[in-house]
Design a binder for these strands. Structure first.
Lengths: 230, 230
DNA sequence: GGCCCCGTGAACAGTATGAACACAAGCAGC
DNA sequence: GCTGCTTGTGTTCATACTGTTCACGGGGCC
């Protein structure tokens, strides 16, 4: 059984993660913390004699009192061998790099659905099982294979008709600045047709990642613009 | 260029690692340290204004003054985003787990030969290149794929279905110029079928050696082009 | 020789894309 | 208000490329 601490400032989201966890066999909820200091207190309590230890932390990077990276550093300097899965809405490569460098084992970008959640936790379970099994030999091959199970690449589920590459290009442009794009503007910029740009923008609006607004003023039918939601 | 610091208590072994590094294009030796404190001093000097930063540390776990894990923790608490490859003769699973938890990206067990060394550093170069490339979109798929390039495939062993000489022909053509090839173009040029060309190009994309892009514009489903990654 | 394994490509079903088009929503003039 | 005009939306469908399956041929090994 892998005991998991959920750290997330929004109570609703924290509950959702806890419920996701409840549906997964092999995992047990060890607690919920809504601040970084609460998380560190729960963790230090769990290391006491007789208490059930915590194996894994689902750690939101955005917390009211301190940065998620800071929480992770505190865990490390306390010499606790607790694994961390980072969860964040921040789309910033340097943050990803830093998170990996402080030893997070998985990186989940919000918003995500149950399948993405399951994939990350299952792969962690596989990794954890290998490295805690005393029968595992300490050979280069065994270590490589354990790391591989952690970093296995699984195909992300996209609706039919959408390509991961194109979606990546659209989100990269949209998320870069706080400006709203119309389908036509985006298509000009990326070398796509308006129809295709619209398809991807509508998808992002559908999953709540983009907000739709009407651009009034000129003559003719108003233009619809899409703004990235953080 | 990836700047590397070699940390190893035995001078002969340290020299050997530095020589291995010298034979690898894309990497530069930033220094050699034989103790933990010397390593930390070199690292803190390298972060000064005007100095060349250190990107990667080849860190032996066994050092005269302090544990390699302790060196790693010090780097973390100094908030430096420096990646670490652990090198050790210790065959102990808990040490492996703890090393991974403090954020090492690769784990090399001594003794190892040049091929194993190359494999670990090349896969790191691929990972590093992806996460420092500003063109990389911050999507779940991109992060997963960057992490996947850290996953090592056993040295010299190709996935089943791929032949070494065919792969050689493909990489030779791809790497020659900075143009992107579609699977069909490549197959025409090499006298292969499109299916086979695609297999090898997908393999290169999977290990991060090629970048995939969609070629939009014309009518019909877009063509995927593959560009060599340096 | 008989057997098995593996790299290859022909064939085919599936799927991202954009040209074309019918329609909808605003504005201006009366 | 109604009418016309202008501009962008939303949908359909041909299209070209993708991704997968499966049979073949050649090479190593009992």
């Amino acid at each position: 059984m892998i005991r998991v601490l959920v750290v997330e400032d929004d109570p609703t989201t924290a509950q959702a993660h806890a419920q996701y966890l409840g549906r997964l066999p092999g995992f047990a909820l060890a607690g919920i913390a809504t601040t970084g200091s609460a998380a560190l207190r729960l963790i230090s309590e769990s290391t006491r004699e007789g208490a059930d230890g915590i194996d894994l932390v689902l750690l939101d990077m955005h917390l009211p009192d301190m940065d998620g990276l800071e929480v992770c550093r505190s865990i490390r300097s306390a010499r606790l061998t607790i694994d961390v899965i980072a969860i964040t809405a921040v789309r910033d490569l340097p943050v990803v790099r830093e998170a990996i460098s402080v030893g997070i084992v998985q990186y989940l970008i919000k918003p995500f659905g149950y399948p993405a959640f399951v994939e990350k936790l299952e792969s962690f379970a596989s990794y954890h099982g290998r490295l805690t099994d005393p029968a595992t030999p300490t050979t280069q091959a065994a270590v490589d294979s354990a790391l591989a199970s952690l970093r296995s690449t699984a195909p992300g589920q996209l609706p039919k008709g959408l390509a991961a590459d194109t979606l990546g290009a659209v989100t990269a442009l949209l998320a870069r600045a706080d400006v709203a794009w119309s389908a036509t503007e985006l298509s000009d910029h990326l070398g796509l047709s308006r129809v295709t740009a619209r398809r991807y923008l509508e998808h992002l609006a559908g999953i709540g990642q983009a907000a739709r607004e009407s651009r009034h003023g000129g003559s003719g039918r108003p233009e619809i613009e899409y703004r990235w939601r953080r």
